[in-house]
């Protein structure tokens, strides 16, 4: 009478044996390396708004945000942390896709709030991974895709008009974090929209994941404790949404005229003139900011 039972994965096969471990690592990788990083990342970015509110940090002469970025860049074994993050994200995403394909959504039939969240968890996971990919590809790997998908500054050529090629590396010592980010978002509303959707998806995915993880790991057992923890996760999600909003406001309200002379030098030399005019005003050209000054500093 058991002919209808489904053939079971061999418990001794590698997948069967490590089934539980893989699943729990999937949960863990989402919360700790990825989730915590995203938290820190959003918190750091939120400081972009400090520039809008208070202007330049008088102690450093740079934006508050730049200070945070410098701190991160100064962290030891940064590359190791980076690779660990790549690995976690890849692991979480690949297994996530396997799980998605092993289930069947049914929100059209069962319109319960938790069921919508279940489906949303998977949809936001897919959105988030696409977002993260392009976010990193453009900002980190400087992929030049074209259209709106471009690397800020360098996507517009990356070559100086006078044919003496200098890359970002040559001007590495000029901290450009805030202008760079602000430029990317102010360039076109589609980019802004993409960021809003992508980051919100990531926030939802993490906050909801945190809530369900408490059930998965058996931290919240009673209905009351699940409700309490739900409030905490909601608060975390809302907090992160505030952080995102702060970052976006900071980036969107950034006035490029507030850049330092060095920053303006890079800005004017890298970007085509129409963009220089758009952000620094009529009549400003790269001729106003000779390259030599910063090249000299680089040699120090």
């Amino acid at each position: 009478m058991s002919d209808s039972t489904v053939a079971l994965a061999e418990p001794n096969s590698a997948f069967g044996k490590y089934h539980f471990l893989l699943r729990r690592l999937h949960s863990l990788s989402g919360i700790i390396p990825i989730g915590l990083f995203v938290c820190v990342h959003l918190f750091t970015n939120a400081q972009m708004i400090l520039h809008t509110l208070f202007g330049v940090n008088p102690a450093t002469g740079e934006s508050y945000f730049q200070h945070e970025v410098n701190f991160i860049h100064a962290m030891p074994a940064l590359e190791l942390i980076e690779y660990a993050l790549w690995a976690s994200i890849a692991f979480h995403a690949v297994l996530g896709f396997v799980y998605i394909f092993n289930s069947k959504w049914n929100t059209t039939q069962y319109k319960y709030e938790a069921n919508y969240r279940y489906t949303m968890q998977r949809v936001t996971g897919i959105i988030a991974i696409i977002f993260i990919f392009f976010h990193i590809a453009t900002l980190r790997w400087r992929w030049d895709i074209g259209g709106f998908w471009y690397t800020p500054f360098w996507g517009h050529g990356g070559e100086l008009a006078d044919n003496s090629t200098i890359g970002m590396g040559d001007m590495k010592h000029v901290p450009m974090s805030l202008p760079y980010t602000a430029y990317a978002l102010q360039f076109h509303w589609v980019v802004l929209a993409f960021y809003v959707v992508g980051v919100l998806a990531a926030i939802f995915h993490w906050a909801n994941g945190l809530w369900t993880a408490a059930i998965t790991w058996g931290l919240t057992i009673t209905a009351a404790s699940q409700k309490r923890w739900g409030v905490v996760c909601w608060a975390l999600g809302i907090g992160l949404t505030f952080a995102m909003t702060a970052a976006l406001i900071g980036a969107m309200t950034y006035n490029f005229k507030d850049m330092t002379v060095d920053q303006k030098t890079v800005f004017t030399h890298v970007l085509p003139q129409d963009q220089v005019t758009r952000f620094l005003g009529e009549g400003v050209t790269k001729a106003d900011f000779p390259l030599e000054a910063i090249m000299e500093k680089a040699e120090h």
């Binding site: 079971l8 418990p11 089934h19 699943r23 799980y99 319960y112 938790a114 059930i215």
Partner: peptide
């Protein structure tokens, strides 16, 4: 804890909604 076990639960929580006997399935 093996394949098809507890760790495959995706937390849609439909179970607890549709259970005619209102079992505390989430618990």
């Amino acid at each position: 804890m093996g394949p098809g076990g507890i760790s495959d639960c995706g937390n849609s929580q439909n179970c607890v909604q549709v259970c005619p006997k209102e079992l505390p399935l989430l618990t």
